[in-house]
């Protein structure tokens, strides 16, 4: 299913990530998933938040550059080959490019969560539903 992801530009200098996380804590915002993509002197922090619009707004007000994008959220079996068989292969076969993805824990046993940014979210959603 499609969900909103909040991405934040954070310079690689001590304390900046902490400051951003403090902002979210101040909003009592739960971070469901987080991944950092690192460049040479900055990082892109991508997050799935309990309330993306409110979280993004608070982060912007604190002086960060933030953007909201639509990503896909999917469940997969927490077992060897789960990612390959249920996500990677079907998307590749459908000719959909994977920009990036990150996985996180699912509270129900035997399952894992994955967040994906793909070239064609609508079609990817259909492929993954199958």
């Amino acid at each position: 299913m499609k969900i909103r992801q909040v991405s934040v530009f954070v310079e690689n200098k001590p304390g900046r990530l902490v400051e951003m996380l403090e902002v979210l804590k101040g909003q009592k915002m739960n971070i469901r998933a987080l991944c950092i993509s690192e460049g040479s002197d900055f990082g892109i922090v991508r997050m799935i938040l309990s309330d993306p619009a409110k979280g993004a707004d608070a982060i912007r007000k604190a002086g960060f550059t933030a953007t909201e994008t639509t990503v896909l959220h999917s469940e997969m079996p927490d077992e060897p080959g789960g990612l390959l068989e249920t996500v990677a292969k079907p998307l590749a076969e459908a000719g959909i490019n994977l920009e990036y993805f990150y996985a996180f824990i699912n509270p129900s046993p035997g399952k894992a969560n994955i967040v994906l940014k793909v070239s064609d979210p609508d079609r990817a959603e259909q492929v993954l539903r199958r």
Partner: peptide, 15 residues
């Protein structure tokens, strides 16, 4: 300065 107009969640685009 990175404004929202040039910011992307994709590292490839920032680079």
């Amino acid at each position: 300065e990175v404004s929202e107009a040039v910011f992307s969640d994709e590292m490839r685009k920032m680079e």
